[in-house]
Design a protein around this nucleic acid. Structure first.
Length: 199
DNA sequence: ATGAGGATCCTCT
DNA sequence: GAGGATCCTCATA
């Protein structure tokens, strides 16, 4: 289990630190292999950029809570809140490998053809864990919590890669995406921007 | 392997 | 009203 002060730091540092950690619900556990940092006031790609709103309120709260938001009319994405109470920061959990509860994860992700597709994207990961807006604001650092964040295996060494964030249309040069090298679940880069086919 | 297009609705402007 | 921190299917190669 993480200490709250460990996470009350800049999201860029937290994004690196969270690689290899484990997010666990009652049934399913996922090891995080890809993350992205979203900062408060100075990051135009962050939900927090234009100030506190009803949706993003937990980003301003104390570290170690879960920020879940709904997007694209059908998907949920999950973040770990960082920074101290009163300052906005979050780490988007972009991908993971299911290490426990694969059977249930597969039921929640019927479209996944292979095991590595169960949580190989932010909305897939969130869905594999069964999270939605009800989980928004959950404290990840209490043993009694239904959703918990744990340290990974100490002995496990890995190399960290970094690059631009995915799916955003501003601040695209910042290398605020981090991943564990060699993991098949890591996203291939897609730039954001206007979608063409809207109607 | 890569790319286009559609699905679908909440949130903020 | 516009536009997403996305995913999936289908087409083409």
């Amino acid at each position: 289990m993480f200490e709250r002060e460990e996470l009350a730091i800049d999201p860029v540092a937290a994004a690196r630190m969270l690689l290899g950690s484990v997010l666990r619900t009652d049934q399913v556990a996922v090891r995080i292999v890809e993350t992205e940092a979203y900062r408060g006031a100075d990051d135009p790609a962050s939900h927090s950029y234009r100030g506190k709103t009803k949706r993003n309120a937990v980003m301003w709260g104390p570290a170690g809570h879960l920020y879940v938001y709904f997007t694209y009319g059908m998907h949920f994405c999950a973040n770990v809140v960082t920074m101290t109470d009163g300052e906005a920061g979050a780490v988007l959990l972009r991908a993971g490998e299911v290490i426990e509860g694969e059977e249930l994860a597969r039921k929640r992700r019927p479209a996944a053809k292979r095991d590595r597709d169960l949580a190989s994207g932010p909305a897939k990961l969130t869905s594999a864990l069964g999270l939605d807006t009800e989980a928004n604001g959950a404290d990840l650092l209490r043993t009694s919590s239904p959703i918990r964040l744990e340290h990974g295996d100490d002995g496990e060494a890995f190399t960290i890669g970094s690059g631009p964030r995915v799916g955003i249309s501003v601040a695209q040069t910042l290398p605020w995406r981090f991943w564990i090298e060699g993991k098949p679940q890591v996203s291939t880069f897609r730039a954001g921007g206007k979608r063409s086919g809207r109607r």
